[in-house]
């Protein structure tokens, strides 16, 4: 029986204009479901999902933000502490793509310096209504040295991959947290003090 030796908690954040599909992306990833009813997110919400990567169990706490203009200043206060940020635009909405630059600026001003970023061009199932070419997405990602994927929450394209890639890039730059393997035999350290280390 494989014994768990390690646990990590990563905080991820989804940002982008209202209506680009942030909530749907999160819902697809956490519940493997999709709904077409659009209920605008009025606030900040999160979901939990545990993934196993490179033999480590990683708990993702994924924050979904309100995209409306009037909440922009408030939502920036939630950037702090995020280890990974997904910037989402809608390939059928030019404006949402143009605003990516604005969102990037927001990140630079408010997020941790070493935050991992990723750009997602969502709704790629709607090719007939596409107004933002894939190459433009790739272009802006290259320009800022960020990885890029086109996704569809509806058709479940690249959703899992997007989260896995982002998680991996966070994981791979945390060398200080390399786990020391615990032998399978019994460990005498009964009262580990991990509870007291927890800060909430």
């Amino acid at each position: 029986m494989a014994k768990k030796t390690y646990d990590l908690l990563f905080k991820l954040l989804l940002i982008g204009d209202s209506g680009v599909g942030k909530t749907c992306i999160l819902f697809r990833f956490s519940d493997d479901a999709f709904t077409t009813t659009f209920i605008s997110t009025i606030g900040i919400d999160f979901k939990i999902k545990t993934v196993e990567l490179q033999g480590k169990k990683i708990k993702l706490q994924i924050w979904d933000t309100a995209g409306q203009e009037r909440f922009h200043t408030i939502t920036t206060s939630y950037y702090r502490g995020a280890m990974g940020i997904m910037l989402v635009y809608d390939i059928t909405n030019e404006k949402s793509f143009e605003n990516i630059v604005k969102w990037l600026r927001n990140i630079n001003e408010h997020a941790n310096e070493d935050v991992e970023k990723m750009i997602l061009g969502n709704k790629c199932d709607m090719d007939d209504k596409r107004v933002v070419g894939k190459s433009r997405g790739e272009g802006i990602a290259r320009e800022h040295n960020i990885s890029f994927l086109e996704t569809s929450a509806k058709a479940n394209i690249n959703i899992e991959k997007a989260f896995t890639d982002l998680t991996l890039s966070i994981l791979n730059k945390t060398p200080g947290r390399e786990p020391t393997d615990v032998p399978e035999k019994i460990n005498i350290d009964r009262k580990s003090d991990r509870l007291s280390n927890r800060c909430c």
């Binding site: 390690y6 646990d7 800060c199």
Partner: peptide
């Protein structure tokens, strides 16, 4: 069995 080094990064 309790395993040591469970560096739980349970921050917030």
């Amino acid at each position: 069995i309790i395993t040591a080094n469970m560096a739980v990064a349970e921050n917030d």
